[in-house]
Design a binder for these strands. Sequence first.
DNA 1: CTGAAAGCGCTAACAG
DNA 2: CTGTTAGCGCTTTCAG
Lengths: 341, 341
Amino acid sequence: MRQVTIYDIAKEANVSVSTVSRVLNDTAPVKRSTRAKIEEVIQKHNFQPNAMARSLLTNETGIIGVIVPDLTNPFFPEVFAGAEEEAQQSGHTFLLSNTIGDYAKESQYLSILREKRVDGIIFLGGRINLKHCEEHLVQELVQCASVIPTVLVNGALRKTDLVRVVTDESAGTALAVRHLTLLGHREIGFIGGESHMTTTSIKLRAFRKTMKDEGLDVREEWLLPDSFSIDSGKRQMLKLLAMEERPTAVFCVNDYTAIGAIKAATEAGLSIPDDMSIVGFDDIPLAHHFIPELTTVSQQAHELGRTAVKVLKAMMNNEKVKKLTSLEPQLIIRQSSGLRS
Amino acid sequence: MRQVTIYDIAKEANVSVSTVSRVLNDTAPVKRSTRAKIEEVIQKHNFQPNAMARSLLTNETGIIGVIVPDLTNPFFPEVFAGAEEEAQQSGHTFLLSNTIGDYAKESQYLSILREKRVDGIIFLGGRINLKHCEEHLVQELVQCASVIPTVLVNGALRKTDLVRVVTDESAGTALAVRHLTLLGHREIGFIGGESHMTTTSIKLRAFRKTMKDEGLDVREEWLLPDSFSIDSGKRQMLKLLAMEERPTAVFCVNDYTAIGAIKAATEAGLSIPDDMSIVGFDDIPLAHHFIPELTTVSQQAHELGRTAVKVLKAMMNNEKVKKLTSLEPQLIIRQSSGLRS
DNA sequence: CTGAAAGCGCTAACAG
DNA sequence: CTGTTAGCGCTTTCAG
């Protein structure tokens, strides 16, 4: 059944469509009685103007496209919630897609976003976390960003100057490592993260640097990247436990791997933090509900989302924005780290 | 800067817009050479047809609106992922919003979805989980569903016959309780859930019935609804622990409350499951990573999402669909439940 | 204050 | 095979 249009309303109210449009958008004065009549008819038919027809004229859709790698990782819903909060005021809505690290899917979705003429794009994960991103993937995104305001969250694209909003993962790592050394740890391992991704290499570099600054040696065999899953945390902890010598503390690239590491260690009969200190990264909601509660570095996911939208809105208004907005991470000390025994 | 349109392409390729449209949609034969020329120009300008203009004609947007209460609860991302999987084939995309139990926000969002002429709506949580939903909220959704194919997931609206896809929570509860009785438990408590929500009352009713069927008494003081958060699980477990007599096993309305309950019990010095068995509901990804791993009832969130979209697509094609599709929950036995000591 | 008319970018008959 | 043309539902001058 055909939906009712502004013409139907106009006819029934005995006015022209322009007048209806005027009361709809409150864009010019309309006589009290006329307006009342029109509003009545609108009410009666429960008329909702067709946003697409309008967008065709205004070139605004009120939609922000969001690309996330995996909503199933609690970090992302948190970012999304922050973004939503900020977008609420301006009435923007989100077109969302999980890309699960599938670059083809990213491309496909990017293309959909362009077709739909979204007002802006927020890009997380995937190609913007790659140490070496293929040129055509780079170009595609650059192309896209030249037409639609785009902000990259916690990532970057080499040799481009796309607008970014990030948390300083380097500083966060330093915070975590220094926390451990302060507790007396001198043998510290590193678990998780895919080595071809920047999140991992940034943390690894910061890890090395901080260790050096603290006058500690980095043991290469204790550097165990893998992936970002709970299972990878388990796997690498098991590897660690099987070694002759093992560290007294471990820094994990995210909370999931930290949880996996704790799990494996606990199952192996260790007590955390008495036998080993473990610190994570992200501060997902669960971190403070896990047993033991996780010492971790907060990325301020919520704030990250808010900020991304804030910056995006500025871009949509053609305001000048900083190429890089950096949020300070925070160390959250809980139960999974303790004095070196 | 103005985006390039089909006219620009037509002019540059020395053809009419209809021909361009034809190659765009492959809707009629076009001479090889002409097609080649047009495709070249399209490539050159990186032209993407404006989806809104098209939608205006076709009355299809390729968008499905999704209303969820809270993506931060891992159950929902899982449903969403399932939905996405199913939607991928048909090229549908999701407009997503968290409503965090705010009915006004639901209304506002519903209205946006209508304006945007989404092809379908998937509604989770909020008003459709209310035992007593205000009439105007009911009507609003019914109204909406009469214009846009809509499916309610894990919920219902009294006195209406909106299409629903649910997991049989009643059966799931019975599964869990019977599992406990099989382990020898005779004193069983019930924790969590807001009592004005149907998810809670359905489970509570099934709990009572199963207990009765098993010939066991329900102790009213051990029935402790509250909310769905980890904290509420903690809170109610604490209450339970403070009692003179306490149950040997507890059924929790979801995994979050179960985790909270375990946490509180563990901190109070109990060992789970040796001192008390605890079973959850949902089987969130974390359930099998928690320590101890959670015995729970799987709602098959992923499948739920898939099915919802499948049904929705059928509706969009004007096929006849069942008013109610019910998925069977599954008992997942892990470590948090054990023989009565 | 109100109406007529043009046009946003595209598709789909209808003619050639 | 290809071009012309009439809308889709709305906003926005431009005249009254």
